[in-house]
């Protein structure tokens, strides 16, 4: 490759740089080549030792990007918005599609658990209401009826409470699961 060609490719590669910046690089390499030739180097050989002009241009562009971001004094010299993978959210619609049956499942679960909470609450209420009746019955002489009702209302209270607490806990878990599906669709890492 001749020097002119090499410089031309370099200049093209430096396109995104501001003009004065680009001119600085070009004159640096032109001077370098001229000095090399002046010292008796073979043109093509010397240009070869300078490396691939595309690589040289890319390296300068990268250095320049680094400089722009190091102005912030941050630790994130290369954390340019442009360098973040644009493919990060490409799978969102596929995930959304997969999530439809998942949503169906979790919402059904939530509805069932909601009904169970209601049922648990109703059972507890029934137990609480029946309890004084059983005591009154017991006290008024119908011991067997009273004792039976007392037992039933206590059982209702226990079963209802267990149902209530169990389904509330399950409801919470199901809500969390729903949230996880949400963040998974959005492509967040901690899904």
């Amino acid at each position: 490759m001749k020097a002119n060609e090499w410089i031309e490719i370099l200049e093209k590669g430096l396109g995104p740089l501001p003009k004065d910046e680009r001119d600085g690089v070009i004159s640096y390499y032109k001077e370098m080549i001229a000095d090399g030739l002046e010292c008796g180097a073979d043109e093509e050989e010397f240009v070869f030792t300078l490396g691939n002009p595309v690589d040289v241009a890319n390296k300068i562009l990268a250095d320049n990007g680094e400089k722009i971001f190091s102005k912030n004094d941050g630790d994130c010299a290369y954390e340019n918005a442009d360098t973040q993978s644009p493919t990060q959210n490409d799978g969102a619609w596929i995930r959304g599609l997969i999530a439809i049956p998942l949503y169906a499942l979790t919402y059904t679960l939530l509805i069932i658990l909601g009904s169970l909470i209601f049922a648990g609450g109703a059972t507890v209420l029934a137990g609480v209401i029946a309890l004084p009746f059983s005591i009154v019955e017991w006290a008024s002489g119908t011991v067997i009826n009273g004792a039976g009702l007392f037992g039933i209302s206590l059982s209702a209270l226990g079963v209802g409470l267990a149902l209530l607490i169990g389904s509330i806990m399950a409801f919470k878990s199901a809500t969390k699961l729903n949230g996880k599906i949400n963040s998974w669709i959005k492509g967040e890492r901690k899904a």
Binding site: M32, K59, I60
Partner: peptide, 26 residues
């Protein structure tokens, strides 16, 4: 000194290429 000569003077002590020198000078 100037680019080409800086590289020539340094080359016996440490390897430095033209593309390495540019950002240093800048």
């Amino acid at each position: 000194s100037y680019g080409y000569k800086i590289i020539a003077d340094l080359s016996e002590h440490i390897v430095i290429s033209e593309s390495t020198l540019y950002p240093i000078l800048k």
